[in-house]
Write a protein that binds this DNA or RNA. Structure first.
Lengths: 228, 228
DNA sequence: GCGATTTCTTACCCGCGGGTAAAATGTATC
DNA sequence: GATACATTTTACCCGCGGGTAAGAAATCGC
């Protein structure tokens, strides 16, 4: 149960993976770092192929051990999933805490949220939380997951409501606005690829701008500068 | 290969389901309507539990037949999926065609797209296309699906580019803007439930507004016309 | 009503993947 | 280096689900 470093930071992920791959090189009794290696490897594979289509045997293989060895560290597959989930959730909650504490107008907080959330997709565990499909879970776990997600959703709604109150956000349904934002952000996890041309910062900035300012050109007062 | 009525319209879906459920009541040789019944039932179940976690035996059970009977109408499970997918895709393409043909500024077209796309989530096949997770597919089919999706994405980008050109949309990266919009919309398929409090029209309008106009209150040139 | 044909069922096979039993192998401790 | 304990492995079991073979049952055309 030691604290697992979740934020690997912009470390070369290959190097990191190798690190985890060697965690089982010998049988030293170092159960914490082995748990950590399992989780890091598993979450990467879950992201790659989805939880339910990633056999534990494959995870084990990556770690150069056999499937039953995993059961020494986790009771079953779902416990691995849940642990990954918890780690990711902690990241999100942490970001949200920081933002909530800011002393700025609601709109600025929402923009900050968009930036923070976008950054999460570069972290495996955060990305995993975003992408996890509830329907893959057993009903017991699903209830927990739903609760967590709902909480995040509600906190985002509060941010928006706050903005409406202080006037930085125009009148709108905070529920729908939150869904729109969450959708745009969650979807990033679907198409983003680290090797791609877009940096996370670019995405974060542009999304913050589009979602807060909208697409429309400056009609300013009224004149529709354009016709076409 | 008869034309399958995909748009059930705002028909009571229970009644419809019953209709499909009785399609196999007798052994009349009516292969077209049976194929149709299979697809409608399957797509509903795929939406409910995801494709890969919906056993064909369950689909058959709903239809009051047995699994092997399905193989009389489709070669394998993936062919059923692909057929559902094609039907949904036709809907989307159709909507997109109509919008592209409109003689209005780019921004208005984008807004129209948002409305049309939102409406698709009330139609099972459309919703299915949106929700389908590529990773559930065999690599052959995945390639096709990817191609289709990319095409839709590119058409949306064109709409945006058009708007930038005619000035109705402010300068932005059409690619990222398209991702933001697509994300917000696709996500609807995740949380929307027909029995819920929000009508599709409400969602469509609010999303069109938020995504085109943004959240920000009217700072207009400067005057804060609004206050709470 | 009779054969030809389609439609559907019963009874399977098989591979995959989660999970376990029990024994083997290594590591700490004395 | 013997003992105890943690760690891993080999060899399984089992249920699930896609898919098939072979025949039964209904329907169609005449």
């Amino acid at each position: 149960m030691g604290k697992i470093p979740v934020r690997a930071g912009p470390v070369n992920s290959t190097a990191e993976l190798v690190g985890h791959r060697t965690a089982f090189a010998n049988r030293r009794r170092d159960s914490d770092s082995k748990r950590e290696a399992i989780l890091h490897t598993a979450v990467k594979m879950f992201l790659d192929k989805s939880y339910s289509r990633t056999p534990l045997a494959d995870v084990a293989e990556q770690l150069k051990i056999t499937k039953p060895a995993l059961y020494h560290y986790f009771r079953n597959k779902e416990e691995i999933l849940l642990e990954c989930y918890r780690l990711g959730l902690a990241l999100i909650a942490e970001a949200l805490d920081e933002i909530t504490a800011l002393d700025r107008p609601g709109l600025a907080k929402v923009a900050a949220f968009i930036r923070a959330y976008t950054n999460l997709i570069t972290i495996d565990f955060g990305r995993f939380v975003i992408r996890l499909d509830e329907s893959e879970l057993s009903s017991g776990v699903r209830a927990q997951v739903r609760k967590f997600k709902r909480e995040i959703d509600h906190r985002l709604r509060s941010l928006i409501a706050e903005g409406i109150e202080d006037g930085s956000i125009g009148p709108c349904d905070p529920k729908l606005a939150a869904f729109a934002i969450a959708g745009a952000l969650n979807w990033i996890a679907t198409w983003y690829e680290p090797a791609g041309p877009l940096t996370v910062e670019e995405i974060a900035s542009e999304f913050a701008r589009i979602l807060t300012q909208g697409l429309a050109g400056k009609p300013a007062g009224r004149a529709k500068g354009k016709s076409a």
